[in-house]
């Protein structure tokens, strides 16, 4: 087991930089994105091996899934515009070549950097503070038993609060660019296909159930708002792709409120707990579990909606909506 495990770890560790290299030097951008998604899946496996199932779940859903979909969408958008443009027939491949001197001039510092970093990470001093047992003690005091969720939402909740703020900000920035939706190549043939519609109908309940399960499990096992939000966000992307959801997602006011809901509830809980206990997001005794679950519930909803909005990039209409 241990030898087989070591071989597996070696293969995973080796394939990550190789895949990164292949993805970035692939001639065709579609191929680059597919290799990027493969990289994400291998990365998720590596994290599962490193005893980090929470991150593995998040990477598989967000890193490989949502980011891959975003990249494919963008590459599709760029290459389709070029099809109309006869002068540039087949970009998505890039065509700015570099002379070997430039490549060498970049290779030398990067090699030195890599060597220095490798030496640094292999000669790390032993940790001075025993963090795991400190965290273990703090978690034992709290009401949420899964350490990663406890760190995220109990005693480092300020980070998580700002993180949902970043997500909201990204959606607002993308909307402010005023892009139009990327059109599907064969909207009639694909969106109207009964096989696809039937497949989504089968897939949707399973995804909703796994999302809710991940959310619920998060307090005691790997899972939580971000993984659940990513699964539901992926469902949103699939629904947009099959035409079940319009790219602008609905009426402007409702979508905006939905995006801001997670952040708003988090802020409200923070302020109320500050009035009650004197510390921002210092939950009062006995309410911790309920408050964390409530925050996670609204976070999941907002994360799912934000990820879908980041995918469609189309700002909601002010009046009437897209329905």
């Amino acid at each position: 087991m241990s030898f087989a495990g070591l071989v597996l770890d070696g293969l995973l560790a080796l394939s990550l930089p190789v895949l990164a290299w292949r993805a970035l030097s692939a001639r065709d951008l579609y191929r680059a994105v597919i290799l990027f998604i493969t990289f994400g899946v291998i990365l998720a496996l590596a994290w599962a091996r490193l005893g980090a199932p929470d991150i593995a779940l998040a990477e598989a859903a967000i890193g490989a899934g949502i980011t891959g979909a975003l990249l494919l969408n963008t590459v599709g958008g760029l290459s389709r515009k070029n099809d109309k443009d006869d002068e540039r027939p087949d970009e998505p491949t890039d065509r700015v070549g570099r002379p070997w001197r430039t490549r060498l001039a970049v290779t030398v510092p990067v090699t030195i950097l890599a060597g220095g970093l490798a030496w640094a990470v292999l000669s790390f001093p032993a940790p001075v503070v025993d963090m795991p047992s400190l965290v273990g003690e703090a978690v034992a005091e709290g009401e949420v038993s899964h350490p990663v969720t406890a760190v995220l939402l109990d005693y480092r909740s300020y980070d998580t609060f700002l993180e949902i703020g970043v997500l909201l900000l990204a959606a607002l920035c993308v909307w402010s660019l005023g892009l139009s939706a990327v059109r599907s190549t064969a909207p009639e043939a694909v969106s109207g296909s009964p096989v696809l519609a039937g497949f989504v109908r089968l897939l949707a309940p399973a995804m909703v159930v796994s999302g809710v399960y991940l959310l619920w499990a998060g307090t005691s096992q790997p899972g939580g708002a971000f993984q659940a939000g990513a699964v539901l966000g992926a469902l949103g992307v699939v629904m947009v792709l099959t035409g079940l959801l319009v790219p602008s997602l609905g009426r402007g006011g409702v979508v905006r409120a939905g995006l801001a809901l997670g952040f708003a509830v988090f802020l409200l809980v923070g302020v109320v707990s500050m009035l009650a206990t004197g510390g921002f997001l210092a939950y009062p005794e006995g309410f911790e579990y309920g408050l964390i679950l409530a925050i996670e519930f609204f976070l999941t909803f907002s994360i799912a909606l934000t990820l879908t909005a980041l995918f469609t990039t189309v700002p909601p209409r002010e009046k009437g909506g897209g329905a």
Binding site: A58, G63, M131, V135, V139, V148, D159, L167, F226
Partner: peptide, 16 residues
């Protein structure tokens, strides 16, 4: 678990 929570935050910030 602290670096795990940081990486989880990082993944979400990276996708944004």
């Amino acid at each position: 678990p602290v670096p795990h929570a940081m990486v989880l935050t990082g993944i979400v910030v990276a996708v944004s």
